Amino acid sequence: MTKIKFIDASFADPNEDEFVLKRRFEWHLRKLRALRNGVSPQVSGDFEDQLRWNKDLAAVTLAEKDRAKAIRRARCVMRARNKVSGLGHLAQEDRRRLEVLRDGADLVRIGSEHRADEIAAAIHAEMPWMAAATDLLWKAMRRSVRRGEAGFRLPPMLLNGPPGIGKSVWSRELGRHLGVPRCGIEGTAEQASFVVNGSQRGWSTALPGRPLQTILQSLCANPIVVIDEVEKAGTPTSSKGQTYGLTEGLLPLLEPSSAAAWRCPYYQVGFDMSCISWILTSNSLRGLTAPFLSRLEVLHLEPPSREHLIYFAAREGRRRGLSDPSMEAIREVLGEVAGRHVLNLRHVSRMIARAEALSSGPRLH
């Protein structure tokens, strides 16, 4: 695991606060006055000589104006450090929140091409109908290994297909196999760009964006961020005519060059967001602009076949401990109905849940 400098700011030594600087300035003043009065340390440098020298310095008295001057200089140094740190405009509480980034953030990498093959094979075994997405993932992981990248980043992708085929589940499986955190955002529930970018202070609900919050909590710089049903997000407009569309807010974050120097509206500090893996899902491309789509690998997915639905039912049934007769009944229903009606994973999940409830219910005598 590699660390990167995630925040465009510097952090002072936490052990050097205003009080420590004041003591240091006072001690330096004592040295200057001791030397001026003819008191000098012994050159031998042994312990007793050093102890005698410290006693001589402690005997030098400082007036109240000397102590006041030392504290003024200490405060001046602290102000200068805050100014050059890039965090001087923040309140102390916000600086404490960002303090976790002092040593950078972690990047999770793919260890070898063999490991990339294992991850792709495991996800494909779970969801073979998502082969197009898994194939893109597999090639991206192997390419990341060959290039020696410090951390894996999936190219921004849009999984476009009918509802209930497992697009969100696929992203959860990816996060589990990669061992990175996952941030999920519902495009229908959180339409404004604030949920991704954060909002400027002054708003009653001002907060940093969800992706940045995920990184601050996990200290992982390459999480997976999933935005479901992005085409339904819409574009909220303020009373002054300003638009805050979710897709517009995503544009600078989907482009690696601009994401590397992305500036948070809430903290007003730069962060390197270029390592995030963005996975967007949609049921259609209606309403999505050309500039937005040009930043994405758009994959058009088909619904699972009848064989895939039966495969999914068998796997879920085993996981839930359903009996063989129950599973056989579900297979028969799917075999008859799937040919006449369009079914998806949600339909199958409801069948399995109903069979599980019946099998665990009380028996009638």
Rank of each mutant, 00 (worst) to 15 (best):
S349I: 00
I224S: 05
V230Y: 01
A314L: 10
M273V: 11
Y244A: 13
L364W: 07
L62Y: 10
D324S: 13
A329F: 08
T243H: 08
S282L: 03
R319C: 04
S168F: 05
R33C: 04
M1I: 11
I110G: 10
T289M: 06
W203G: 02
Q42D: 13
W27D: 14
P265Y: 10
V169M: 05
Q92M: 07
T214C: 10
A58C: 12
G202W: 03
Q200P: 00
R97T: 12
E190L: 11
L253I: 14
H89S: 10
L322Q: 02
G317H: 03
E26C: 12
G270S: 12
M78A: 14
A12V: 06
C275Q: 15
Q217C: 04
S294L: 01
R319A: 14
L301F: 08
A260K: 15
V226A: 01
L32Q: 14
A353W: 01
A338K: 03
V145I: 09
E356Q: 09
L35M: 14
I227Q: 02
A233W: 00
Q217M: 06
F312A: 14
F152G: 09
G86T: 13
A131D: 15
L343R: 08
H89L: 04
K65T: 14
A34D: 10
K240C: 01
A91M: 08
P162C: 05
S257H: 11
S112L: 13
L301A: 12
N37S: 15
F25I: 15
P155D: 09
N15T: 15
A192G: 13
A125I: 00
L174M: 10
L174Q: 02
Q242C: 00
Q42G: 12
G187C: 07
N37L: 13
L21M: 14
Y266E: 08
L137N: 02
S305L: 11
G88Q: 15
S193E: 14
A357H: 05
V225D: 04
V180A: 01
N344F: 01
L32W: 11
I110T: 11
T214A: 05
M141E: 06
A116F: 00
A68K: 14
V348L: 02
A206H: 03
R201V: 09
D8K: 10
L137I: 06
G317P: 01
N54Q: 15
G184C: 00
S277W: 08
S360P: 01
E173W: 01
E113V: 13
G202Y: 05
L35G: 07
A12T: 06
T2W: 02
L246E: 07
